[in-house]
Simulated scan of single mutants.
Amino acid sequence: MSRRFVNQLSHGDSIDESYLVADKQLRANRQGNLYLQLELRDKTGSVGARLWNATEELARTFEPGDFLRVRGKTQIFQGSLQIILTHVDVLDRNRVEPEDFLPQGSQNVARLMARLREILLAMHNPHLRALVECFLIDEEFVRKFTSAPAGIKNHHAYQGGLLEHVVTILDVADRILGLYPEVDRDLLLTGIFLHDVGKIEELSYDRAFAYTDEGQLVGHLVMGVEILAERVRATRDLTGEPFPPELLLRLKHMIVSHHGAYEFGSPKLPMTLEAIALHYLDNLDAKLHAFGREIRDDPSRDSTWTPFQQSIGRRLYKGTPAAATSDLEADS
């Protein structure tokens, strides 16, 4: 029997299915009774789940990254779909198909990598091109870069998401840079490529998406600067010259400032044209992707609005449902 994916669930469904545990919290209600709050995931998305009257013994039997067979029933609560669980069993991870559980991007990874190479290897600055080549000839780096998500929840949270995010920004920059001749094209393109490079080590993504210990303690901005500094030392072998200190300084600044504001984790504000451009291009792609996902994945098919989303501080207008639009057109 074919499995029921998360994006196929709707209000009132009876559930008997296997999912990956993306998050687990053991909580107590107002009466002091324990319950489990879970985030369950497959390749199509995630859904919240609760198991009432849980025990500490049960909670210790599995962790995020494990697989559960769950039974229960779906319901809409405060505008979001969730599963009220009645039973959970831990599954042997060797008896599941991993590709069913980690979210995948819709774009072809080989095609994305070909586009990334096309844009970056056409740069004219020999030092920046050599730097990029030092990354792209490293098979282990390429494996991680093409597998990593761009985030755990907020945007491009699927395998290959980091690559897709970077290539989208590169494509946008490639189309508009002719309008801004004062911006150093090669420097901006290299900064786009490297701005989130620390995420290949900040995140773990072999099973459930999570932060590594180093990712929690240091973060991808600092880790990105460290990775950059390591590769810069290797460019001398390709160019026969030391990497220009000014270029290195500007690239470091782009990495540490690309979040754009202190409250969003940037230790420095963007202070060069390329850093400012990077920040806004990065933010544009992240926001449009995240907002589009909220609209696309909203389980309330008949509503013209999404539920209020705390993370973005608003509801989003989805427009008139397609069926209703067709009825209106037929009546006109």
Rank of each mutant, 00 (worst) to 15 (best):
G198N: 05
G198M: 04
G198I: 02
K199F: 15
K199L: 11
K199C: 02
K199A: 06
I200P: 00
I200Q: 01
I200N: 02
E201L: 01
E201K: 05
E201W: 01
E201S: 05
E201F: 01
E201I: 00
E202I: 02
E202K: 02
E202Y: 04
E202N: 01
E202T: 00
E202A: 02
L203K: 02
L203R: 02
L203G: 01
S204E: 15
S204G: 11
S204Y: 00
S204M: 02
Y205W: 10
Y205L: 08
Y205K: 04
D206F: 00
R207W: 14
R207S: 15
R207D: 15
R207M: 04
A208W: 00
A208G: 05
F209T: 08
F209L: 12
F209E: 09
F209R: 07
A210L: 07
A210C: 05
A210N: 13
A210T: 05
Y211F: 13
Y211W: 08
Y211M: 00
Y211N: 01
T212K: 09
T212G: 06
T212D: 07
T212L: 12
D213I: 12
D213Q: 11
D213V: 10
D213H: 10
E214R: 15
E214N: 12
E214L: 12
E214Q: 14
G215E: 12
G215S: 06
G215P: 03
G215Y: 11
Q216E: 14
Q216I: 09
Q216F: 08
Q216W: 04
L217R: 15
L217H: 13
L217I: 03
L217T: 07
L217Q: 15
G219E: 11
G219R: 05
G219Y: 11
G219L: 11
G219N: 11
H220F: 11
H220D: 04
H220G: 01
L221T: 10
L221E: 10
V222K: 15
V222M: 13
V222C: 10
M223V: 04
M223C: 04
M223K: 10
M223R: 13
M223H: 03
M223G: 02
M223S: 04
G224N: 06
G224I: 02
G224H: 01
V225R: 07
V225A: 07
V225C: 09
E226V: 05
E226A: 05
E226Y: 04
E226I: 03
E226M: 07
E226T: 05
I227V: 14
I227Y: 07
I227D: 12
I227P: 03
I227C: 04
L228Y: 02
L228P: 03
L228S: 03
L228G: 02
L228H: 03
A229T: 01
A229K: 11
A229G: 00
A229R: 13
A229E: 14
E230A: 07
E230D: 12
R231C: 09
V232C: 14
V232P: 08
V232Q: 11
V232Y: 13
V232D: 13
R233E: 15
R233H: 06
R233G: 03
R233V: 10
A234S: 07
A234Y: 04
A234R: 13
A234E: 14
A234C: 03
A234L: 14
T235M: 10
T235N: 06
R236A: 13
R236D: 09
